[in-house]
């Protein structure tokens, strides 16, 4: 299998989807000629023409709103919001329109769109280029939310999202576009091309939505996470020689709660890890579901490790980021509890 960066894998998924289905159209700010500020759509305009891959005015509302209209007219729009931090003008279109169109028309009109957006911090992007707003989507009935952590999953989940009959929010952790980031920002990054998780199957290889992946296996605790934090968790588990299940959710809605419950019932300890702010984060939902399903198997309360409840600071990036040190401290406390 070839190795790809996550960017190349996302590009590959677009290419395959556009080649297979001429209803797939791709648009957003800078995605046409330039191929996106992260280059995820590079080459698509040249290959498929400007009516299937094009630049838009800077209006996230316009991008998502027109995507909904196109979807209602039998197209399969895959749109990019340049940073997840820029999605707020589109929020009304997502929450009040995309998410409910099927429901309010009893299936007469549907909304098969994919809204891609780079998410998360770790690039010194400060408050406007670092947010992780996944919980703002998972809270909305009618939206599916995906967060890949490897190039293969980015490709496979994006293909599945494009083929899904409903609106899918596709959050791309920008810190791991080029290589898995274990949270040690002072060490050189190992690129995907030289990493075992950088292998990407060729061709049309969708990864079904709603299935978690077990990234490490162990007996003492279960770490439930997604996106960039999968690699932080793997780094800490390996570095400290822990015996832990590391569950990569991959899809938050629909949630593979069965995989989580099976693991927690076996290990008896559960730590939920995400980069987004703690309060009302997706970790709260996970903690609630785990205690509902596993209460009598738990040896200790479910632990959440997350970003602090502040805006994402610039200079204090690594104080904010729930990195290896904070994670290990909390794991040790959980194991002793």
């Amino acid at each position: 299998m070839p190795h790809m960066t996550m960017i190349e894998a996302i590009r590959d998924a677009h290419d395959i989807a556009m080649d297979r289905d001429e209803r797939v159209v791709v648009f957003g700010e800078d995605v046409g000629f330039f191929g996106g500020v992260f280059r995820c759509t590079a080459g698509l305009q040249k290959k498929y023409g400007a009516t299937r891959c094009f630049d838009t005015p800077i209006s996230e509302l316009g991008i998502v709103g027109t995507a909904i209209g196109m979807a209602a007219n039998d197209m399969r729009p895959v749109v990019e919001v340049q940073f997840a931090d820029y999605m707020y003008p589109a929020y009304d279109q997502l929450v009040s329109e995309a998410a409910r169109l099927r429901y309010r028309s009893a299936g007469e009109f549907t909304c098969p769109i994919v809204v891609r957006m780079p998410t998360g911090g770790g690039i010194f992007g400060a408050q406007t280029h670092s947010q992780s707003p996944e919980a703002l989507f998972t809270h909305v009935a009618g939206l599916k939310t995906v967060v890949p952590s490897t190039p293969a999953d980015a490709k496979g989940l994006l293909l599945a999202a494009i083929e899904d009959p409903d609106p899918v929010i596709f959050l791309e952790p920008k810190r791991i576009y080029n290589g898995p980031f274990d949270g040690h920002h002072d060490r050189p990054l190992v690129g995907w091309k030289k990493h075992e998780l950088g292998e990407v199957p060729e061709g049309h290889t969708p990864v079904p939505l709603g299935k978690a992946a077990l990234r490490a296996e162990g007996d003492d605790l279960t770490i439930v996470t997604y996106g960039t934090m999968v690699h932080v968790a793997l780094g800490v588990v390996a570095g400290a020689g822990l015996s832990a299940d590391v569950i990569d959710l991959r899809t938050l809605v629909p949630l593979d709660i069965d995989a989580v419950v099976a693991s927690v019932k076996r290990t008896g300890r559960c730590l939920v890890l995400h980069e987004a702010t703690l309060t009302s984060g997706f970790g709260a939902e996970l903690a609630a579901q785990v205690q509902e399903a596993c209460f009598y198997h738990l040896e200790a309360p479910v632990k959440r490790v997350a970003g602090w409840d502040t805006p994402y600071p610039h200079a204090g990036e690594w104080d904010y980021f729930p990195g290896p040190e904070r994670l290990l401290r909390n794991i040790e406390a959980l194991l002793e509890a």
């Binding site: 280029h129 600071p313 200079a315």
Partner: peptide, 16 residues
Amino acid sequence: YSNEGDTVHGRQLPVF
């Protein structure tokens, strides 16, 4: 530079 003399305490991107 987001240094100690920054009036907004290094919270914002440079030039903000």
